[in-house]
């Protein structure tokens, strides 16, 4: 019972984080900020979901698999974000700066 409550709570947090991230992805003004929003929330969001699920299933092979999902996400997500930013940077995509806003005058 208590497990159910915890897992539900985890799901809800996960949902919230995910939605925040997605909202950030959609509404932030430039690429680098979007990366920031997406990757930070993503990692935690995934963790919440997966641990919630692990609580649901109890202890079995499936739990191990879920753990692997989590590990995988934790490994790959930052790595790809890193690679993405790096590539964008090298391609000459400039970050938005305050000077961009203010220097016009």
């Amino acid at each position: 019972m208590i497990v159910d409550i915890i897992s539900t709570a985890l799901f809800m947090i996960g949902c919230l984080l995910g939605l925040t991230g997605a909202w950030g992805l959609l509404s932030f003004p430039d690429f680098y900020t979007r990366v920031h929003a997406a990757s930070i929330t993503d990692t935690l969001c995934a963790a919440c979901f997966v641990s919630g699920l692990m609580l649901q299933t109890g202890w079995s092979l499936v739990t191990v698999k879920l753990l692997m999902v989590l590990l995988l996400l934790w490994l790959t997500s930052p790595a790809s974000s890193h690679a993405l930013v790096r590539a964008a940077h090298h391609a000459g995509l400039r970050a938005m700066t305050w000077s961009f806003l203010g220097d016009r005058s």
Partner: peptide, 15 residues
């Protein structure tokens, strides 16, 4: 970036 996010969410959805 969006595709990446889409993918991770798919993973979670399926799980």
């Amino acid at each position: 970036l969006a595709m990446n996010m889409f993918g991770t969410k798919t993973v979670l959805l399926i799980a």
